[in-house]
Design a protein around this nucleic acid. Structure first.
Lengths: 217, 217
DNA sequence: AATATTTTTTAGACTAATCTAAAATTTATA
DNA sequence: TATAAATTTTAGATTAGTCTAAAAAATATT
């Protein structure tokens, strides 16, 4: 069984590699884990010895199939717990992340299956991120950053980046939630800021914000 | 903040001391923690330095007011999570203990208050053990082991000892749950086994079992 | 009361995860 | 392409929690 630290490193590698599609450098990983490169190297060797990642000295790491499965199991737990916290306990979505970071490490297959059932087998978490199923299958939606679309675009918000609590508070204030319809009325050339129609209300968004909103046309 | 290990030791000391009413010996503690006396001594020094227990070399330890408060906070979390697992997720009471052992270490005051509210502020957990309130107050019920009462006794089951999963499965089979009325019809002198009326059904209980059932007259 | 037994503590070693400093290697630049 | 700069790895030290073996102290027994 993986230690808490191993699970956290593996999850970070999984996310940094965009779900296993590219390799991750030692410094990136150290940065993401708020630790030093030397520590990252040590852990890389450990995870490599356990066949969770493949590693070539000086050239970064990639998750193996086994590592991806383990990472997805953690992601599944994280997102189910976030859903529970918001839907059942009334947390706001900017509050859930750090508690879910703890809850995701509880070991009990029975617990997570029961929780999934209790929540009605949700497909996405409160930020719109897909929840892997019990077999580790993840449905990746075709979505793009709102900063990538042209003026005139119409679609729905599919997800928001869940990294920063202050961003989430701001998104909550302008009520930019997954599921809402959005239309780009105008895009300012100079700073790429947007004028959008969000739930029939006119809102201005800086690029800083728009790149954290994911949409599907 | 306490480490996971410190929390577990402190909780063990609290339980072994019967809620802070008597001192605990090094070997008892080591036994309860499935570890060696030397390790227990080390941890005793650590907890003592943090003023959570008082300690006189060779004469055992006692929890301080501060230690008792910390221990009760963990007990509160444990019992609320057990209640959640049984009431909301449909766990049977013999399955909950080890999962609750993990969940009790999640740090988030907000989480535990929300959970308490979600469960409707329960007073006792599924085994009948009282749940400390947010201020660390624990209501101790006047109760006694079923092995201590005489033939003719009538009362209700207030709690069952939650230590052993096999015992709990057996209690479940004969449906000996907290809240049920119980009457002792006969007590065999020789082995102290009992013939009882439980929920209007006649059941035979060995002393081995009866001492794990707590009742109030 | 002296000695044997049990319990507890101390001393020293081990593992996991971390760090700093130095060495090795790769990438960038002149 | 040789050298400088950046990145990564290695070496050695540190802390928390654990262990074994030996020493110290308390308790039990003759």
């Amino acid at each position: 069984m993986l230690s808490l630290t191993e699970e956290n490193y593996l999850k970070a590698i999984y996310h940094l590699s965009d779900g296993g599609t590219k390799s991750v450098l030692t410094n990136e990983l150290a940065e993401a884990m708020s630790t030093k490169a030397a520590s990252a190297t040590d852990m890389i060797k450990k995870l490599s010895a356990k066949d969770l990642i493949s590693y070539e000295k000086y050239y970064g790491v990639n998750v193996t199939a086994k590592g991806k499965a383990e990472a997805l199991a953690v992601v599944r737990k994280h997102r189910l717990w976030e859903t529970f916290l918001v839907q059942k306990l009334g947390f706001t979505w900017d509050e859930v992340h750090e508690v879910a970071e703890q809850l995701e490490h509880i070991h009990s297959p029975r617990l997570i299956d029961k929780l999934d059932e209790f929540l009605g087998f949700p497909k996405v978490d409160p930020h719109g991120d897909p929840i892997p199923d019990g077999k580790g299958k993840l449905k990746v939606l075709p979505q793009v950053g709102l900063d990538q679309v042209k003026a005139g675009f119409q679609g729905v918000i599919t997800a928001v980046k869940d990294s920063d609590s202050n961003l989430l508070k701001y998104l909550d204030k302008i009520s930019a939630k997954p599921g809402l319809k959005i239309k780009v009325i105008n895009k300012e050339e100079y700073d790429e800021s947007l004028e959008v129609l969000l739930d029939n209300k006119k809102v201005f968004l800086s690029k800083e914000v728009s790149k954290n909103i994911l949409v599907s046309g």
